[in-house]
Design a protein around this nucleic acid. Structure first.
Lengths: 257, 257
DNA sequence: TATAAAATATGACTTATATCATAAATATAG
DNA sequence: CTATATTTATGATATAAGTCATATTTTATA
């Protein structure tokens, strides 16, 4: 069994080269002492057992501090990342404005938009809290896909799902009012990140980020959120939001203008 | 080499069952006398040569009349389609309003959003002109993916690209003004469908469809289009539009409010 | 070819949402 | 533990884009 390791593309950035490995680490990020357990993400889980050592040699477990952007839109693709711990936002900008395209948590892949013909990341990725991510160089990842058909198949299905989600959101941005989009966002986030005992969504999110996620301005989201509180659908507690009436909140989702 | 044919899912709809095959045709569509040449779409091109006879047995070449919706959002997935001739819009609705998510022409796959965990089409597909499409039952398509790794890999890359395009459009809907979105739409369409000698984009598209594609109302698109004509960037000729100044039109694309 | 049905064209009016301004309250860093 | 930056809060105002109304032209179809 053969595979190739390459840091050609990766070395385009300013990197720290470790002399004990052929690996590469992006500038500001620190390497984590303890690596991931090789069974937290779909990649590790779905690749052949025999492939594990190869993954082990090629992966790099990195520490990303809160607010640190570890993928930058427009830069050359160096690899994909898997979130091992923490939470990440994937975002895209247009002029001054920003749109959060997706959130990622433990187990999720980030940077897979770097696959395909275009060799530049179409989005940025920033940690929302101190996070640990596992970096897989793109060439090794591609080699892995060739070897691990099952993972390739699942990755294809994952892309299909992502596309569906993306197009639904696209439609919402086009036609759903901000209030519905905020409601939808809260439902999605609650679903993805779960809630603590107090009913608050288990994600620390600034209002500005919620605004960027819903494709609206901070002020509008602020007002809409107040409405939802007055109507008794949600509760606010600092940077945390809780859903009080899931049914009514869901119904906000299909209210026209 | 084995593969399975199934019309289980397909038979949920009202269908015409041909007694000489195990195949299924969606209600209103007519079967074409002449089949496709088995080399016009990526599927036929990238599958193993040895797989061709299997494709031949399972595919169905169908005639779709103008305005006919051959995939309906929310219905059970029966298979994927490849456009052999004509042009198709892929759209999604929210209440009364509609958003065109993508256009497809000769060689393009349609209905691949039916892949993944959800067994219902998340979008509809409607022919914009009399078209010929090639239907591949979903079970056979999935079997093909298992057998044809190269096609699976390319399909995955295709999905990655689609996702990129989708997210860019998402961002545009969130932050770009209508004028920019119309400009962008015209550039995209010109790129995809090409232009005739007279410089007009080679696609017959109603203003309403252009509006649905840009996520705006008919009236707004109408006005914006007039502006673009007055500024000498585009010309109109019935249902056809031509780009007069590609550079200026491109620059409209990054003009904020 | 007549006749209904779409699609196009435009003006007048409304409204959802963005922008601007500015104060108060938290964070974060030195 | 102060200081500076960032996030939250909220009113006033502007405007892009949607809605409504209605005439005209084009395109299907009986």
């Amino acid at each position: 069994m053969t595979y190739q390791i390459s840091n050609r593309k990766a070395s385009v950035k300013t990197h720290i080269i470790f002399n004990n490995t052929k690996s590469v680490i992006a500038y500001a990020m620190k390497r984590s002492k303890k690596n991931c357990d090789l069974q937290s993400c779909s990649f590790c889980k779905l690749c052949l057992r025999e492939w594990s050592p190869a993954i082990d040699v090629n992966r790099q477990t990195l520490l990303v501090s809160k607010g640190e952007e570890f993928i930058t839109e427009g830069e050359k693709v160096t690899g994909v990342y898997f979130v091992y711990e923490g939470a990440v936002k994937v975002h895209k900008k247009w002029g001054e404005k920003e749109l959060i395209v997706r959130f990622a948590k433990r187990g999720d892949i980030v940077g897979h938009r770097g696959l395909g013909n275009d060799i530049y990341y179409p989005v940025s990725a920033t940690a929302l809290e101190p996070s640990t991510v596992c970096f897989i160089p793109i060439d090794f990842f591609l080699a892995s896909l060739k070897v691990n058909q099952e993972y390739l198949f699942q990755l294809m299905l994952f892309f299909a799902d992502e596309l569906k989600v993306s197009e639904r959101k696209m439609r919402n941005l086009a036609h759903m009012p901000v209030k519905g989009r905020v409601a939808q966002a809260l439902l999605t986030l609650s679903d993805k990140f779960g809630t603590a005992e107090d009913g608050l969504i288990d994600l620390t999110l600034s209002r500005q980020d919620l605004a960027s996620y819903t494709g609206a301005t901070y002020e509008t989201v602020f007002r809409v959120l107040n409405e939802l509180v007055e109507e008794g659908l949600v509760k606010l507690s600092g940077k945390h939001i809780g859903i009080l009436d899931i049914d009514k909140l869901t119904s906000v989702t299909d209210q026209p203008g």
